[in-house]
């Protein structure tokens, strides 16, 4: 079970509240009928399926119900970052290794009993 930070609710919530919605940043053509078979195949069927960092869409279906994007490592299942839909694809080289622990399961052993530090100020502060 993953722990996922919804960028709209600004809270980490259990995976059960979310639906994965596939690879992110795949642009749908404005004129889909005019797409060549090759381009339609790329858009619809071909997936990068990386072993490493993936950009993917999630939907907080049992929360705010909104779609957002995430960068996650598919080897450790650890989230590097979640960000709002429409925001540009983040530059991975700029993501610090410790960009907000989101998956309890993959926390280093010495931090296992530690609560994740809030990345952003929580409500009331700021």
């Amino acid at each position: 079970m993953l722990l996922i930070h919804c960028p709209y609710c600004d809270e980490e919530r259990p995976e059960l509240e979310f639906r994965n919605a596939g690879e992110a940043h795949i642009a749908r053509s404005n004129n889909i009928a005019a797409e060549s078979d090759e381009d339609f195949e790329k858009f619809f069927f071909i997936r990068s399926n990386p072993k490493g960092v993936i950009f993917e869409r999630w939907r907080h279906i049992h929360g705010c119900a909104r779609f957002f994007n995430a960068a996650r490592d598919t080897i450790t299942d650890r989230f590097l970052l979640t960000y709002k839909a429409g925001e540009p694809k983040p530059d991975l080289t700029k993501l610090a290794a410790d960009a907000g622990p989101a998956a309890w399961a993959n926390r280093p052993p010495d931090q296992l009993n530690e609560k994740p530090k809030a990345k952003r100020p929580t409500k009331g502060e700021a």
Partner: peptide, 13 residues
């Protein structure tokens, strides 16, 4: 599981 992964584990739920 609902997400792509190479971790050879999966969620308890």
């Amino acid at each position: 599981d609902q997400y792509i992964s190479y971790s050879q584990t999966g969620g308890l739920h």
